[in-house]
Nucleic acid binder design. Structure first.
Length: 321
DNA sequence: CAGACGTGGCG
DNA sequence: TCGCCAAGTCT
């Protein structure tokens, strides 16, 4: 067992927990080590947290659910204005459920990944049809809603209902990778070891929801991917990565996502036309935004298959009605 | 499980 | 400039 890629620095949690595996010839501790990161992170959050509207004390579970879906792969600064408009227009799930799905797509604007708008609309209808108009509070039920996966279910259960869940998003994974594992970046996909680690760090019920949002915020504002601001970090003295001299990432190349010329870009162009038109558009209006006909047809078929667009009997196209 | 799925801004 | 990255989910 000489897998010594871990730094010899003082870990923020016990070695067994940090490794995500049982120490040789010993049982894992039943009771996790106390979380040394808890107090400094909570103190930092109390002083440095952004004043985001979905974190306001009066924010409804619905408004929090909407924010979480919008924030998937999308920066806060771009979500803010769209979320505000949605909340004015559709303050409840029932309000959105009363609209055709195309309206959700139209008011999604340029947030990207527009299937999320469709998911939110489907969530709204499921919530009104099956849950009495109230956003479900438990993780398992949230997971049954469209577009809600492991992370979002935990986030809503934690932020909206103050449940005790490990909320593992890209920010938290990066903070834990650095502070505890001593590595610059987490694995490409979430591992069971990461999940065990996150759960081992979970404080008691009273602190769990704040801890979750605080670690996320730390990752978003200080422990950033590109240029971490270690000078402003409340746990810099405990950080295994810093203690190890901030070794550069040496794992496999990270996924690069090219965009220009892809079907995704083509879909974006086509949908943009449909969003801006307030009625069915002739095929010509779509043809002019993309030169390569086969790719354009494939993209359009894809949008229709995904429920983001529909063809009418007269051969015109529009957002789903 | 790797790849699809939008868009814009920053280092 | 341009690749990388942003509160993921689904297949």
């Amino acid at each position: 067992m000489s897998d010594e890629r871990r730094p010899a620095a003082a870990p923020a949690v016990s070695a067994g927990e940090a490794e995500g595996r049982a120490p040789a010839r010993h049982y894992r501790r039943e009771v996790p080590e106390s979380n040394l990161l808890l107090e400094p992170v909570l103190d930092w959050y109390a002083e440095s947290a952004r004043d985001l509207p979905w974190r306001a004390p009066g924010a409804s579970p619905w408004s929090i659910l909407v924010s979480e879906i919008m924030l998937q792969q999308t920066p806060v600064i771009r979500v803010l204005p769209v979320w505000t408009e949605w909340m004015e227009r559709w303050p409840t799930a029932a309000a959105l459920a009363g609209e055709p799905p195309g309206e959700a797509v139209r008011h999604w604007g340029r947030l990207g990944y527009p299937r999320r708008a469709l998911n939110l609309h489907a969530c709204a209808r499921a919530i009104t049809d099956r849950h009495g108009g109230e956003v479900p509070s438990d993780h398992a039920t949230l997971l049954t809603l469209p577009g809600i996966g492991e992370y979002t279910a935990a986030a809503v259960a934690s932020f909206a209902f103050k449940g005790r869940h490990a909320v593992l998003d890209t920010n938290v994974r990066r903070v834990l990778a650095r502070a505890v594992r001593g590595e610059e970046y987490p694995p490409k996909a979430t591992t069971s070891a990461e999940r065990r680690l996150a759960e081992s760090l979970l404080p008691g019920a009273d602190d769990a929801p704040v801890w979750a949002v605080a670690v996320m915020e730390l990752g978003a504002l200080v422990c950033t991917a590109r240029a971490p601001r270690c000078a402003d970090c409340p746990i810099v003295e405990l950080c295994a990565w810093r203690l190890a001299g901030k070794p550069a990432y040496d794992g496999p190349a990270r996924k690069g996502q090219t965009y220009a010329g892809t079907d995704r870009q083509c879909r974006g162009r086509l949908l943009s036309v449909l969003r801006q038109a307030h009625g069915p558009v002739p095929k010509d209006a779509l043809d002019v935004v993309w030169d390569i006909a086969p790719q354009r047809e494939r993209a359009l078929d894809g949008l229709i298959a995904d429920g983001l667009a529909e063809v009418l009997d007269d051969g015109t196209y529009r957002l789903p009605g």
